[in-house]
Design a protein around this nucleic acid. Structure first.
Lengths: 245, 245
DNA sequence: AAGTGGTCTAGACCACGAA
DNA sequence: TCGTGGTCTAGACCACTTA
């Protein structure tokens, strides 16, 4: 059985492959839409959907009346998608390992129950981990999950390498969006001890709420050694203009 | 003369207005596409474009075979678009003021010329500002712009309230994407003095490169008092699946 | 004026989810 | 099975950019 692949994705991938293979110089234009229709034997709608996908990812810039310009994808490709902290580190070439410090079922602390909008009577699973990049401590991570969603996670958590991968493979939970709140602090004694740095070392604090279809799934608290990690985010475009009747 | 407004935007705004007016309970479904076609007397393509816009902004969640679910927009509306630091603060209800500390034309420091990919012989304009929220210092901001793009900005900068607004109104430069690199540090003596905090106070460091159509326009360095500001970002969806031929 | 992308239609068939 | 959204077509007209 062969997977059914939409034709717009085929066109999208063909064009993307050409761009990544440097078949266009930066500043060159993609063939106009009528040409792409003929070349791939699809309708205009399909061509446009493919090109709009590329534009959304920063590969090209579409301009009415002018054409579709190919951008320098090497400088434009940033992480604007949901990935876990450990996946990001791996993508940067580090060998990442996790040491699970504790797995407990607890009543949600006030702040957590508020952010996950869960009553304080519903139990949550709290997982604390030390993240090491190339064997060197880089962050202390604490995750809170709904106990009902992840039965038996206490047994699986100690050996996992990525929480998101575990959620996908074992519980069929696919995170599709997340909000990060980023601030900074000086490390307290406890955190500094775990990270093996001096008390007062600058810490990047990331609190993340993950969602699936608009429903909160997980709350995470990361305390990252600022000198060893940089958070990057790419944002694009302003919202569509409002109407003024 | 009346502005020509696309029909999909009319449908989009009508639906958005209904959602914001709480005409749907969280979890309710939007009318199915065929109904929306009749109601607004447009084709299916137009309905879909409107609904996809809403989904992209987190107002609804589209699921094949199930329907289009209305989400709680109050908790979903985050800043995933390009806005300036001062615009964000104003959006949070602060009265924001800027004190321009200096405006100079300089040769780009090595790091800047590298990040903006500009030769060190091309001059850049360096603007340093102190940002105050409700009259209290909150950040020191340094912007670097191509001198050729912003002639006479030395005269205009001292009175501006938002750099992005100045770029748009005076130079017709519209930023459409940006990448932020976020880290943390302890304030040094100079920064601490400007911000009127103790040396060593945690600082959130944001370095931003702004683009227009893939071309770098501006580099910014923000040193923000961590206790007074939280950076938030909403990310969504993973990239389309790759094809494996 | 010519060529590019932007909007829109009417209709078809497919794939997923719930009853 | 039925109703939902997902993909796709062929063709039309509009709006912007450039020459």
């Amino acid at each position: 059985m062969t997977a059914k692949i939409p034709r717009y994705l085929i066109v999208y991938n063909a064009l993307k492959k050409q761009i990544e293979a440097d078949q266009y110089q930066t500043g060159d234009r993609l063939p106009p839409e009528p040409e792409l229709e003929k070349k791939y034997n699809v309708s205009r709608t399909t061509v446009r959907k493919a090109v709009e996908l590329l534009a959304g990812e920063g590969f090209v810039h579409i301009k009415q009346g002018r054409g579709t310009e190919v951008l320098d994808f090497k400088t434009t490709q940033k992480l604007q998608y949901v990935t876990s902290f450990s996946e990001t580190l791996r993508g940067q070439g580090f060998t990442v390992s996790q040491r699970v410090l504790s797995v407990e079922t607890v009543k949600p602390p006030g702040k957590i129950s508020e952010m996950l909008s869960v009553s304080e009577s519903e139990m949550v699973v709290k997982i604390s981990r030390l993240t090491l990049a190339n064997e060197v401590p880089i962050a202390v991570m604490t995750n809170y999950l709904f106990w009902e969603m992840v039965p038996d996670i206490e047994e699986k958590a100690p050996t996992m390498q990525s929480l998101y991968q575990l959620l996908e493979s074992e519980y069929n939970i696919f995170i599709d969006s997340a909000t990060d709140y980023i601030s900074a602090a000086n490390s307290d004694r406890n955190t500094a001890g775990l990270l093996k740095v001096e008390e007062g070392t600058p810490i990047l604090v990331v609190r993340r709420i993950s969602y699936r279809g608009g429903e909160p799934i997980e709350f995470a608290d990361l305390q990252i050694i600022a000198e060893r990690y940089e958070y990057s985010v790419h944002t694009k475009e302003r919202p569509p203009k409002e109407l003024n009747f």
